[in-house]
Design a protein around this nucleic acid. Structure first.
Lengths: 246, 246
DNA sequence: TAAGCTAGCGGTACACTGTACGAATGTCAA
DNA sequence: TTGACATTCGTACAGTGTACCGCTAGCTTA
């Protein structure tokens, strides 16, 4: 019912561990061995405690994941005083910082599903509000603007994490090799004229590498972000007010 | 190693079930009881077979999920001949269709992690290529453009699915009620001036409802999509070529 | 200092998961 | 009818999260 942030750590008698330590251990395991390797037994082993001991610091595994998520959100935060003054530069910096943090922990997005948002999440929200504070649009419009940029950032991170996961599982070559046979067969059927054209003039393998390259290229993130900010800026400068739904 | 799409269904002797039937059963369970309820035992029960029987139609559970994913991608496809001629209208229609399909199955994105892409995924790729075919930019730029729009779509769907999941678990009121105490406490600390300002003039509860409303409002999707397309259009019209990274 | 309370620890057990193995059953070709 | 083998599925095992409960160590009070 009540989230973990409402309940105090145990502490009247000196506990052997701490939430920070446990979260850090879980994070280390996730980074090293993947998110699926994070089990209560594995984390307990990592901190040198019995499995059930963890349940004195954390009510459920979901709570532990909340702790991990908030640690990630901590990495997203912009250090005090470094947030640019203009809304565009500020939003851009926040977006890039999020991007960087999630690239360091590709499993994080998957873990984030049904997280409730801890203190660092709140601080992140505060910073985003600060970024758009100077804009002269109503509150709803500010929230919408923040949401739209977040949508893009999360989408990029989500999709790039997908590819990253697939690539770390197998090597690029092996992955392409595995997909090729079935793929070529389909293409030759003639049902996919545009894909056929795409692969037409060049070597099949070369085109595949181009696709993987585009998907994983970091440049695409800033490219798309700037295009989106262009669109927002144009709308804001366009005299007509931000068109709210309500 | 090889994906499910490469191996034929069992069939020389009349099998009692089919991949379609099994995938449909799994989909029904996911829609009705949530993605986590989809277990091999549960699906087998649904189709009226022994648990291990499923393994004659599917090599692993991951394969079954691939089947489910491809069914969803089938819902995303634009019917033959209905794809608009201009790139912008076409991309917009594909994006909206994706949006709609994933709203119908909020669990689908979570299931999609490390899916390998089946026939309907390929058809979707074909349609996206068709949408940007008329543009006079090089292949890489086309792929980048498609990727950027997909990033946005996935991001919106991901974040809205998060909120949707939280809201179906508890009622909106109950959710807000649960978060309020801890939240108000934090706000009063003075560390969050912008959030404090946001909640300042109005009733706390009212502002919360505004936030939830903005997050879940479907209008935000098309709003952001149009802004992104504005940015892309401006760049394309700007004379200067699409700035590729390579 | 001694007694006792209890916070913190963790072993055992249970219901659940995916799936390897192999025995039983059914259906076809000969 | 007989063999071959595709199809079905019961059993078993290693893994998961966590409820329950006994134990021990350290603080508080007498």
């Amino acid at each position: 019912m009540s989230s973990i942030w409402d309940r105090p750590e145990p502490g009247t008698r000196k506990p052997r561990h701490s939430r920070e330590q446990i979260a850090a251990a879980a994070l280390a395991i996730a980074d090293r061995e993947g998110f699926d390797a994070v089990s209560m037994r594995r984390v307990a082993e990592e901190v040198g405690a019995g499995t059930m001991t963890l349940y004195h610091y954390v009510r459920t595994k979901a709570d532990l994941i909340d702790l991990m998520d908030d640690a990630i959100m901590g990495e997203v935060l912009i250090p005090d005083g470094e947030l640019p003054a203009t809304w565009r530069a500020a939003m851009r910096m926040i977006a890039c910082s999020s991007h960087a943090a999630f690239l360091r922990h590709p499993w994080a997005l998957r873990a984030m599903t049904d997280s409730n948002g801890g203190p660092n999440g709140l601080r992140h929200f505060e910073q985003s509000l600060a970024a758009v504070a100077s804009l002269e649009i109503d509150t709803r419009a500010k929230l919408e603007l923040m949401g739209i940029v977040d949508d893009y950032v999360f989408g990029y991170v989500f999709r790039s994490a997908e590819v990253t996961a697939a690539l770390t599982a197998r090597a690029t070559d092996e992955l392409i090799e595995g997909l090729l046979p079935h793929f070529e067969l389909q293409i030759r059927s003639g049902d996919y004229p545009h894909i056929q054209a795409l692969f037409g003039d060049a070597d099949t393998r070369q085109t595949w590498e181009l696709i993987v390259d585009v998907m994983t290229a970091e440049s695409r993130f800033e490219q798309g972000l700037d295009l989106l900010l262009d669109g927002i800026e144009a709308k804001l400068a366009g005299g007509g007010a931000w068109s709210s739904a309500g």
